[in-house]
Simulated assay, not measured.
Amino acid sequence: MRERLDAALAAHAWVCEHLLDVQQLVTDAFRQPAGPAAAPAQEARVLLHRLGCLSLALDRLVDDVDAVDRSTGAGEEALARLLAAPCEVRFTAATGEPVTVEAMTVQEILVAAREHVAGIRRIVEAYGRDRLTVRARRLRSSVERLRQLATEAAAEGLGDGADPLAALAVDGLLDRLAAAEAAGRGRWWRGDVRPERDDGALEAAVDRAVEQVDTARRRLRRGCHAELTGRLEAYRQRAADVGRAEHPEVERAYREAVAALRPDVFAVTDASRAVQAYQRAVNGGTP
């Protein structure tokens, strides 16, 4: 049962992370979803919507898991039945079409989610092929999201304090993009960086950089989540040691911190503040 629980939680975390990624990807690629972009934008959004439905099914499963009292034998049996049963996935459509419901195992949901994520990426790539502006927008957006996350982590004392962008060396690539874009607009580029001929190398370099930046952001996000979860459990143990674990205020603060650490809503600053609030409650309201 432990393996099934871990698999369900891991699938939930993966789908939540990648849903956020492809939502941003579609937003960046189809800022003006008209004309030539209309068809691929619609196709991508349909897949994105279905991915959201899969994510909601896992959200409900995790909610049900959290609601089970595992301190009793009956609770353990209820949890085992819950993890063994397929999830009810409700596929809706913005067009008013009837809702369809499918029974899917966690593994089937994860496989379908991976296919949808890959499909969205293929659609965006096909639309963005030979469109350097789309790729440039994706890279700048990814860099900004990583920079923002790193700033939030540092402000909350999470991570090692190192700049994750420094190791990726994307500044030179951004300069090359700026030069290529300026040349494409008929502007003469002045400076050390000269426009390069579009032979596909720049586009490929941007695609690799986007994947590296997104991977670094997911790694940092997971690290922050793990660090905050570790802090929360350490404070939970302290609460038990000092006899305050069942105090109503302490228990309420713990539930709020656990809720803030859920992968589908996890935001570094909010989760960190919730864990800090629990620490204060454990300490009797003192810093």
Rank of each mutant, 00 (worst) to 15 (best):
R236G: 06
A209S: 04
P195A: 08
E251T: 15
G191Q: 04
R236N: 07
V206G: 11
G223R: 09
L174A: 00
D207C: 03
R208T: 11
E181G: 04
H225W: 04
G186R: 03
A216M: 11
R231Q: 11
D175Q: 13
L202G: 09
R208K: 13
C224Y: 11
D214N: 14
R176A: 07
T215R: 15
L165D: 04
A259Q: 15
R236I: 00
R208G: 05
R238L: 14
A216I: 10
R231V: 01
R185M: 13
A234H: 13
D171A: 14
D192I: 05
A245M: 06
A180Y: 00
P263C: 10
R231G: 04
R252S: 12
A257N: 08
A234K: 13
A169G: 03
R194M: 10
L177E: 06
R176E: 12
A178G: 15
A259R: 10
R187V: 12
E156G: 01
A183P: 02
Y235F: 15
L165P: 06
D207I: 11
L168W: 05
Y235M: 10
V258F: 02
R252I: 01
A167Q: 09
D214K: 06
L261H: 08
A180P: 00
R194G: 03
H247I: 10
C224V: 12
Q237R: 15
A245E: 15
G172N: 08
G243C: 14
G191F: 11
A234R: 15
P195T: 08
A182K: 10
C224L: 12
V265K: 05
T215D: 15
D175V: 06
R236L: 09
P164T: 10
V250L: 08
L232P: 07
L177P: 00
V210C: 15
G230W: 02
E246Q: 14
G186L: 14
V250I: 07
D198M: 10
G191I: 08
D264R: 07
T229A: 12
A260S: 15
P248C: 10
R255H: 07
A245P: 01
P195Y: 05
P164G: 00
R197T: 04
G172Y: 06
A226W: 02
D199E: 07
A234S: 13
G184C: 11
W189Q: 14
E249V: 12
C224I: 06
Y254P: 02
P195F: 11
G161R: 00
A162T: 13
G161A: 01
V258E: 14
D192N: 12
E227T: 07
P263I: 12
A201W: 07
V213Q: 03
W189N: 05
E246T: 15
E233N: 11
R238N: 08
G243L: 06
R219D: 15
L168R: 01
D264T: 03
L202A: 09
P263T: 14
G157K: 01
A253F: 00
A257C: 03
A253C: 13
A253E: 05
D163I: 01
L177R: 05
L177S: 08
G159F: 03
G243T: 11
E156R: 12
R244A: 12
E249W: 01
R187K: 07
E196L: 08
E256T: 06
H247P: 01
Y235E: 11
D199R: 03
R238Q: 15
L232I: 10
A234L: 14
R238Y: 01
A205N: 04
D192H: 09
G223N: 05
